[in-house]
Amino acid sequence: MSLRVNDLRVHYRTLRGEVKALDGVSFGMADGEILGLAGESGCGKTTLGKSLIRMDGRMRHAGGTVELDGRELPVGDDRAMVAFRFHEVSLIPQYSMSAMNPTRRIGRMVGELLRSRGVTLDVKELESRLDLVGLPRDVLGRYPIELSGGMKQRMVMVISTLLDPSLLIADEITSALDVSTQQAVAKALLGFRESGYVKSMIFITHDLALTSHIADTIMVMYAGRLAEKAPSDRLTKAPRHPYTRLLINSLPEIGVRHQDRKLTGIPGSPPSLLDPPKGCRFRDRCPMAGEECAEDPPPVEIEPNHFVACWKA
């Protein structure tokens, strides 16, 4: 087991109280596994990703533990986490386009970053990784503004994985890209795993179609909790949670016109996490909701590696 998350709770401090963005999430990841983390905006997927590497000033670790390669990650302790960052856990952020210091040449910035982490820059290694993602070697002598969006994205991917982290968190990295660039990014991620640059990976996205291509396992979250987690093809072909089903049904299909089949969405919106309702959080929007849904549904392993948190599953 590479990563083990137990009942992780992370709250956001706001003026109106604590928003329970992550409210008791447990899951595990095997060595070399790519986990696709899906769900609509505000379901807690980015919060989960951030919690595993660096919480921002408004986030508070409210409970639960995280274990990486048998060692406990001090997720709530900003200082103690420093030793793990970059070396063990690394991040490709949502904002790759602006992730590099605009007034430093890229090569110099990478050198300074590595030196500050007590590592000397291996130029040969760096160049071979640039080759892997198809970047010309002279990007190191350029400023970030001189790169296109796709190039910046790949450059950040190379920087983030330079120290061969055990866990890589890729947060919505394909959201702003066109389809062919998305494919290139997905391929590069798989290449990183094959070359052993990263052991396992959490791929956060709201694009179920793309994630089913590259992820081994998909985990769907809803309102700060796990809804369903299953191997990719099982989850896409035989989803058991009503939310997953609706999510997959709401994907548009190419070639199907609006007149022939209306695009169905999921009516309603997720509950406020400031004071979440008791019981199943999807109850208000769920077409199958019944009496028992007033109780919290625990995640149950209905088949090997297939977890569902629903009474009806």
Binding site: R54, F86, S90, A99, M100, S160
Partner: peptide, 9 residues
């Protein structure tokens, strides 16, 4: 870029 650097420790 500050957040990214901080995330990389």
């Amino acid at each position: 870029y500050s957040n990214y650097l901080a995330a990389l420790g």
